[in-house]
């Protein structure tokens, strides 16, 4: 992929998005997006409408803050998630990466006292607006967790679980969906002869791919992955990473990772987060992954990605 042209496109698109948002007046804190500001100054402007139409982000957080009770865990994050791209969120422990990604399908709602300020737009609709069906949001924005969490059911039933939520469907059709999902998650050949066996008997890496199959079986629009490889060995990690490259043909993917090599390998854009003095996490930089890892604008990002941090 020609890097130069791709990065230029991003710059313009970000610029475009920024301008559009400024036009609407929904991006009050420019400090959270230094890149956007710089791009606005340094790149030849396309027309805002053109750029926005080219890459309207699939999801976009707008000045998003997440609170646990009175404690602010994430502060003013404005992060675009583009369709058919992989967006990585990196940063040191405790900077709010997991909190941020879990807010994208409202999994934080499960934690008592958690609430959000700002907006999370999914196709231009705020998922935190009143009257939004959380269950529907979670069907559109699937999630893969840090530790593989297959249900104690058969492999088949694990993949079919989400599909069955939509009501009864013919057995043949369900078989089809299960097979397709397992094929797409590169697990079919390993499990096709033991679909009725318990998923708990699979290895950790297989379990995680099963969880991915389970997530894509319901045809979500976005897949969130919260450190999906942290409990896996390098071979299983490689498989998951290859799988992500396959999946990004169809989905927007957001991945939280502690592994900077992984972020550099798999992602298209990267958000760098950092804990502020008041312990709230903020996004200090967002850019094309190539740029974050070669010529980041923020000194802290540079220190972090080069391993000189702390």
């Amino acid at each position: 992929m020609p890097i130069a042209s791709s990065s230029a496109r991003v710059a313009i698109s970000l610029h475009g998005v920024t301008i559009v948002q400024q036009g609407k007046g929904v991006l009050p804190d420019m400090n959270t997006s230094p890149l956007a500001r710089e791009n606005a100054q340094s790149h030849a402007p396309a027309t805002a409408g053109e750029a926005a139409a080219a890459v309207m982000p699939k999801m976009q957080t707008e000045s998003l803050s997440i609170y646990y009770g009175n404690f602010r865990a994430v502060a003013d994050v404005t992060l675009p998630v583009r369709d058919r791209k992989i967006t990585a969120i990196i940063g040191p422990s405790g900077c709010g990466k997991s909190t941020l990604i879990r807010s994208l399908n409202r999994m934080n709602d499960l934690i008592a006292g958690a609430h959000a300020g700002g907006k999370v737009m999914l196709d231009g609709e705020d998922i935190y607006a009143s009257g939004i069906d959380v269950v529907d949001i979670r069907r559109r924005v699937g999630m893969v967790f840090q530790r593989p969490n297959p249900f104690p059911k058969s492999i088949y039933d694990n993949v079919a679980f989400g599909v069955r939520l939509y009501g009864r469907i013919p057995k043949a059709e369900l078989d089809d969906i299960v097979e397709t999902s397992l094929r797409r998650s590169a697990l079919w050949d390993e499990v096709k002869d033991k679909l009725k066996q318990s998923a708990m008997a699979l290895s950790g890496g297989q379990q995680q791919r099963l969880c991915i199959a389970r997530a894509i079986a319901v045809e979500p629009e976005v897949i969130l992955m919260d450190e999906p490889c942290s409990a896996l060995d390098p071979v299983a990690t490689l498989k998951i990473e290859e799988l992500m490259q396959e999946l990004k043909q169809d989905y927007a993917i957001v991945i939280v990772t502690h592994n900077m090599q992984q972020a550099a390998r798999v992602s298209d854009t990267t958000a760098m987060m950092m804990m502020r003095a008041d312990r709230a996490g903020e996004m200090i930089e967002f850019d094309e992954t190539q740029i974050i890892f070669t010529k980041p604008r923020d000194k802290r990002t540079e220190d972090y990605v080069s391993g000189r941090f702390g």
Partner: peptide, 8 residues
């Protein structure tokens, strides 16, 4: 979380 995350 897994089940709720699938939209159950």
């Amino acid at each position: 979380e897994g089940a709720l995350g699938l939209g159950a």
